[in-house]
Amino acid sequence: MEDLSLHILDVAENGIRAGATLINILVDENLEDDLLTIVIKDNGKGMSAEFLNNVLDPFVTTRTTRRVGLGLSMFQQSALEAEGNLEVQSTGVGTKVTVTMRNSHIDRKPMGDMVSTVLALIEGNPNVDVVYDHRRGHGEYVLDTREIRAELGDIPMNFPQVVSLLQCNLSEGLKELNVIS
């Protein structure tokens, strides 16, 4: 994976494949403590204790289409390269993946295109709600599709005009935080 936004998309898609109806994404760029934290939480079916113990092994996967699962292992590798860590918690309902990195570490991967990641998630899975919370320094941007869905009634979340609106909002929000230029 070239950047963190692709890792985030990958983990979030895992949650959706696990039957999640709500995906929470938190990106916290704590500049004072030089700590980058990414938390991806879903309310899918979770993992068994046995699977959780082996989840970072690349040769462990729930898939039946292939026998290796590299997603979490690669994200862990990216975290370790930047003096960080990746932890997976799952208690039967839902899964929470917490990743930390030293923000200024020379090997920290760039944030990448979070606008495309969040749009791909929402548009590709219009029945799944997404809460995206991005903090940088003292600024914060929050997008909660549950609020938008309530206003839209029976217009789907992936309706082109809605997607355009989301795209503008995400871009403006992340520009204000100086996440993107």
Partner: peptide, 8 residues
């Protein structure tokens, strides 16, 4: 436009 998982 929609998404799916790995097809193998």
């Amino acid at each position: 436009l929609t998404n799916s998982g790995c097809a193998g």
